[in-house]
Nucleic acid binder design. Structure first.
Lengths: 354, 354
DNA sequence: TAGGGTTCCTAAACCGGTTCAAAGACGACG
DNA sequence: CGTCGTCTTTGAACCGGTTTAGGAACCCTA
């Protein structure tokens, strides 16, 4: 017995057949109690660990789950969401003896072929689906391939579980916060509508702003800081009476970029312009001014998604797991709306400029 | 033949034995040319794809490689290095029919056990090793486990390949840049010496500063923005004649944090204080002021590391792959050293303050 | 035409588990 | 005492590849 002990070694040492050892190890009925005890003792003594590969071949299981991030790597790099998400998912998966198989798929690569290969090769038993799109074509594909899936965000598909955070709550809180500060021209530099959460948040902003009687000015971008900077420039070029007094960005890095453009023109944040981010990334608390943003818990999100997938793999029915709603974190990048040049209503209190 | 065709199906259809089909598909000698052609044709027609699991069982190969990130998830979240690194590695691996198995290991988790499990379960054929430490205990462990490894950064171990970027060049360029701007008190907010690149860069800074006659003031931190902020505060509390005129930070997020603390006290960057980052993360070009930093190419780094591992797996000898040296990217966060209160030498040119 | 070497191919073992049909042991019951 | 049912266990097939020992057919040479 040079290498690691196999199930046959255990069987021989315990004086029983391979099959019985397998039954005993897998807690299946029909094994006499003290036989089972003996087998387990022998297995333990020999330091037996079943071979994943042998088991995989007969069970047709991979004991691994996939995470497919379908986005340009450069955008992923600027997005602090995934690392903690992955950390959370990992923690749960490792405890369950599973590993995480990661795929970062540039958008120009053939998605369908990739999923198909993943399924055909039985590399994963299920997948965590990020960057969900409206009517995502991956959902029917995965169903066809027989791969259980958990979506990050609401899918509307009864075949897969999803883990959702009510970020509408965060959106409404943001709008309320800005409205309370007197802002009446608020621009939203939103993510692309081709992303489910991009569209959902944009709609939520539109509704919340409208509800407060603020004219919604929503610009769709690709979530990149470059796009945010460019849009910010364009908005700040507007004549003073049309220029927004607050900018709400789709993520924190975009907010940093927008703030940067404003400061470059001498526009002070938050004195002349308020800026909000989204995600509550680590960086948000360290910029100057520290960023007002909407926070979720990517780590918990990852853990919940992994758990939901494990439940699904164990034969559970698809569910929708709701995490705690996104929370507005007020920091220093938002302040009272500046008195506009022709702004109606009372002038700001305090001494007038000399 | 309900499911996918197996090698036995191909053998039957081609009228030969399983073994011969295996030989033909794997380009092994001893198969008559036209028999081989026929077998391949039949396999193609049937849409045969060998089962990974069957193959894995007999070859004892996983056709997957591991990436183990040994760091607190929160620190990984703030570090924009890994996502593009992973993207680069993935691209190469997928082309070679391998997948990436990711492990994010919180530092409190039992590392050795994790690697051992990875090896025992044959989940991976080799690993990419990040966050290298001096005399890293993982190197002998992996050697014992028989897992080929490629280190990110120099390992000094002849058993594994490594992919290195000469960031000393970037360090020297940074010091020269600051020295040219007249800085004589430069503080380095370095990463921990428990990380190989932390120690290496700190040493390089010490040497380069010393060489230029600048007193090296090197503070070791854990790379986190929080630590950078705290150290920055402490340094800026120093009496003016000891206060550094330039801060060099271990990464870009730390630099943003340090800049934030300075600005909070009304210290203008770069007028009163110059700040440098490291990594050239996406965010560096969008902050205000845009960050002077040292850039590498994480994507290429990832691709090179993956390729080096594939070479190792194919039986090649361990090598050290050198990528292009880190490059200083000068932006707006560095400027001429302010004239000190008791600074010797000529006063700055230009009109004196009114 | 026997002997020796190639070339091409087959059959079976092997990797390490799981699963299932069937057989053996045993006690209870009529 | 024979029969039936339950509990426990065995042996073999199976998952889908790779690998190896050996056999058949062929050519070349003496």
């Amino acid at each position: 017995m040079a290498g690691k002990p196999t199930i046959a070694d255990v069987a021989r040492a315990a004086g029983v057949s391979k099959g019985l050892v397998s039954f005993a190890l897998n807690d299946r009925p029909g094994v006499a109690a003290d036989t089972k005890r003996r087998i387990l003792a022998v297995a333990d003594e020999l330091g037996f660990r079943p071979s994943l590969q042998g088991r995989a071949l007969s069970t047709r299981l991979a004991y691994s789950v996939g995470l497919v991030i379908a986005r340009d790597p450069r955008l992923v790099a600027a997005d602090p969401f995934y690392p903690p998400f992955i950390a959370g998912a990992e923690q749960v998966l490792i405890a369950a003896g599973r590993t995480l198989t990661l795929s970062m798929l540039a958008p120009d690569r053939d998605e369908a072929a990739h999923y198909r290969a993943l399924a055909d090769d039985r590399r994963v038993d299920g997948v965590l689906l990020g960057d969900l799109r409206p009517d995502d074509p991956r959902l029917p594909l995965l169903a066809e391939l027989g791969l259980p899936a958990v979506t990050i965000g609401p899918s509307g598909d009864p075949r897969c579980s999803s883990v959702v955070v009510d970020d509408v709550a965060g959106v409404r809180a943001t709008v309320q916060h800005l409205a309370d500060l007197g802002h009446r021209r608020v621009a939203v530099i939103a993510g692309p509508r081709t992303l489910e959460h991009g569209a959902r948040r944009a709609d939520a902003f539109r509704a919340a702003l409208h509800e407060r009687g603020v004219e919604p000015l929503i610009v769709e971008t690709d979530f990149s800081p470059a796009a945010a900077a460019e849009v910010a420039d364009r908005l700040l070029d507007l004549p003073a009476e049309h220029r927004p007094t607050a900018l709400v960005c789709g993520n924190d890095v975009a907010a940093v970029a927008a703030t940067g453009r404003a400061m470059r023109r001498g526009i002070r944040v938050p004195l002349d312009l308020s800026v909000c981010g989204f995600d509550d990334a680590e960086i948000a608390q360290w910029t100057h001014p520290a960023l007002t943003t909407v926070g979720t818990h990517p780590t918990r999100w990852g853990a919940a998604a992994a758990q939901a997938l494990l439940d699904l793999l164990a034969g559970g029915a698809p569910t929708e797991v709701r995490l705690e709603p996104a929370r507005l974190v007020v920091r220093d990048s938002t302040g009272p709306a500046p008195a506009g040049p022709a702004a109606p209503g009372p002038a700001p209190s305090g001494p007038a400029p000399a």
